[in-house]
Amino acid sequence: MDTNFSPIATEARAMRTSLRARRKWGCIDGTIGKPEEESSKMEDWWTVQSMLVSWILNTVEPNLRSTISYMENARDLWDDIKERFSVVNGPRIQQLKSELAGCKQGAVSMVTYYGKMKKQQRWATKLQGFHYEIFYKHGRDNRVVDALSRCESAESILVSLSSPVPTVLTQLAQYYATTEGKQLVEKLLKFST
């Protein structure tokens, strides 16, 4: 199955990899054929088919699942899904790419907005490890911030003005100095030996 340029290429590759890992891809590509009707292997073959049909249907979006014809043979089901969803609509894909490229958040392009958002997420992650309080200071009284807001690179000045001090180790040391903390350490030492 050539799915390199198909809209379902990623899902198809993932399913193919999963089925190969379970040695079941041959049921889809036809290298493992259906045994004779009277064969002792027929019941096992139907068991595998039922399992494969179930796996394939469970990977399909629930709202699309009801539109797919029920088939008991995994290869027929795979071919039906491939035929329905592998249709490439070049003009629509180009239209979506153009819309995405022109997408804006307010007056800022999405690329710029996303970059700022990632930067804010990094700072939020860095600040999560610290205990800090934010106090409102009226504009006239807050001369440092007022001066920094006029700088070209306020970020570098902010970093040099602030020095966050982690308090976790101090809090742990204080806790372990208490009777309760000492008892906990003793229990842990007994438990580990």
Rank of each mutant, 00 (worst) to 15 (best):
67 T>S: 12
140 R>H: 06
110 M>T: 03
100 L>W: 06
120 Q>M: 12
160 S>L: 06
28 I>F: 14
76 D>C: 04
149 S>V: 04
2 D>I: 13
141 D>T: 14
57 L>N: 14
128 Q>N: 09
132 Y>T: 13
158 L>Q: 03
75 R>L: 06
182 K>E: 01
155 E>N: 05
98 S>I: 10
150 R>I: 05
178 T>I: 10
33 G>E: 07
59 T>F: 09
74 A>F: 03
76 D>R: 13
22 R>K: 14
138 H>R: 15
88 V>L: 15
31 T>W: 13
181 G>W: 02
29 D>F: 15
25 W>G: 00
24 K>D: 05
164 P>T: 09
37 E>C: 03
111 V>D: 08
147 A>I: 12
98 S>E: 10
45 W>M: 01
179 T>W: 02
36 E>N: 08
153 S>T: 13
154 A>R: 15
193 T>P: 03
34 K>S: 11
80 D>Y: 14
4 N>W: 07
185 V>K: 02
115 G>R: 13
23 R>E: 00
56 I>Y: 15
26 G>P: 04
24 K>I: 02
167 T>P: 00
46 W>C: 00
62 P>E: 08
153 S>I: 14
130 F>W: 05
192 S>P: 03
56 I>E: 09
31 T>S: 15
149 S>G: 06
91 P>Y: 07
26 G>K: 08
139 G>P: 06
41 K>Y: 09
162 S>F: 15
135 F>S: 07
180 E>W: 00
158 L>A: 04
46 W>P: 00
149 S>P: 01
90 G>A: 04
18 S>F: 13
100 L>Y: 08
8 I>Q: 06
178 T>W: 08
59 T>Y: 05
9 A>P: 05
87 V>N: 12
65 R>E: 13
126 K>T: 14
175 Y>K: 04
95 Q>L: 11
175 Y>T: 02
169 L>I: 06
167 T>M: 14
30 G>Q: 06
141 D>A: 13
99 E>C: 08
1 M>Q: 04
182 K>S: 01
173 A>D: 06
22 R>E: 09
130 F>S: 05
68 I>V: 12
155 E>W: 01
58 N>D: 11
149 S>Q: 08
44 D>C: 01
15 M>R: 07
163 S>A: 09
103 C>F: 13
54 S>P: 01
135 F>T: 05
159 V>Y: 04
86 S>N: 12
97 K>H: 08
15 M>T: 09
82 K>E: 03
